[in-house]
């Protein structure tokens, strides 16, 4: 089914705004309605912006008045920094989703629901398999934060899917998104001049380029692909390797101390170091994207490594350890070696 009238939640955030713009540029789409609690910072084209909190039943009215047929739910927040605290974040994520789903259930015109979820619902534990497929249950249940919200959101979405089997529900579990305009906890973390790591651990991380995230959400909106899909760039990076590629010095901190340091960082609004992210920094996580490629039919253009390199390039990260200098030193030493060769043979 081709979407005609699309509702985008969380439209004032970078990803939502970009999605709304891209949908508005499509002449086949009659209406794009964007909702959020705060006004969008940028121009959204012909998107009609409605300032409404999805926690408010008013959302039902928006859906019925605009005769929405496709709902793109993007307002599950990853960090409390922009929401004004963890409690508010949980409200927006969980209660907001419940209200939105309740409104969709009552709206006969809605045919499709696309939900942005996260791979962090798989948690991070030493008992994790190397790659999670969509059917696998998390080994260690996420204890709090974004991951726990996302688990609850997905639970409500599954319940909704059972009650309205006529609606095509697509759940996209995105890996950590990095891109030019993305401000995520991971981006802020990797942007620190000295990167704190968990002493004695080196997690595997997987990244998704913002362009690929956009493309996948777009494809899910335009076409019908009911189901749950992991979305991530190919391959993995070790955190230590990522830090080296960014030319940063790592700062290994023992596990007990890193928690309190995280609290201080959160107070200072530097980075969000919640317990779930600590688990990620110790054990990492990677997912299997076979289903995305073979069933959904999308192959990410950027691998994890390419995503990271373009992130480093776009942000113009100041290299604390200059790669060119390292290469020059290597060349210099090799030259020195070659120079010494005659002496070596005469010996």
């Amino acid at each position: 089914m081709r979407p005609r009238r699309v509702l985008v939640t969380g439209v004032s955030r970078p990803l939502g705004a970009e999605m709304a713009l891209a949908l508005a540029a499509d002449p086949e789409i009659v209406d794009v309605v964007g909702v959020d609690t705060i006004a969008p910072a940028e121009d959204l084209g012909r998107t009609q912006f409605v300032r409404v909190d999805i926690r408010n039943p008013l959302i039902a009215k928006v859906i019925s008045t605009a005769a929405i047929d496709t709902v793109l739910h993007l307002s599950v927040l990853a960090t409390p920094l922009g929401a004004g605290g963890r409690a508010a974040m949980k409200e927006i994520n969980v209660i907001g989703t419940m209200q939105l789903l309740a409104a969709c259930q009552k709206a006969p015109g809605v045919r499709k629901l696309v939900v942005k979820s996260t791979t962090s619902i798989y948690g991070s534990s030493p008992r994790d398999p190397a790659l999670f497929t969509e059917e696998m249950e998390p080994r260690g249940f996420p204890g709090g934060g974004y991951a726990k919200d996302a688990v609850e959101v997905e639970g409500y979405v599954r319940g909704f899917g059972r009650r309205r089997p006529d609606i095509a529900v697509t759940v996209l579990r995105l890996a950590n998104v990095l891109g030019p305009g993305v401000d995520s906890p991971l981006a802020r973390y990797l942007d620190l001049p000295v990167v704190p790591t968990v002493l004695g651990f080196d997690p595997r991380i997987q990244l998704l380029h913002a362009e690929d995230a956009m493309a996948v959400l777009m494809k899910a909106t335009r076409e019908d692909h009911a189901g749950t899909f992991n979305v991530a760039g190919d391959g993995v990076l070790l955190l230590s390797q990522a830090i080296r590629r960014a030319g940063r010095p790592p700062l290994p901190i023992p596990f007990p101390a890193i928690g309190s340091l995280g609290n201080i960082a959160r107070r200072l609004r530097l980075v969000d170091f919640s317990s779930e992210q600590l688990g990620f920094l110790a054990h990492g996580r990677a997912v299997d994207t076979t289903k995305l490629k073979e069933v959904f039919g999308y192959v990410p253009r950027y691998s994890t490594v390419a995503t990271f390199d373009s992130f480093v390039h776009d942000r113009e990260l100041r290299f604390t350890i200059d790669h060119e200098l390292v290469e020059r030193v290597e060349h210099g030493l090799r030259g020195l070696l070659a120079g010494h060769r005659p002496a070596g043979t005469s010996r």
């Binding site: 790659l131 391959g235 070790l238 080296r244 590629r245 030319g247 290469e327 290597e330």
Partner: peptide, 17 residues
């Protein structure tokens, strides 16, 4: 060359690490 690769992170690990 090995040292340079290690310092600049210029190596690959597979999905199992």
């Amino acid at each position: 060359a090995f040292l340079r690769r290690r310092i600049t992170g210029d190596y690959t690990v597979d999905e199992h690490g």
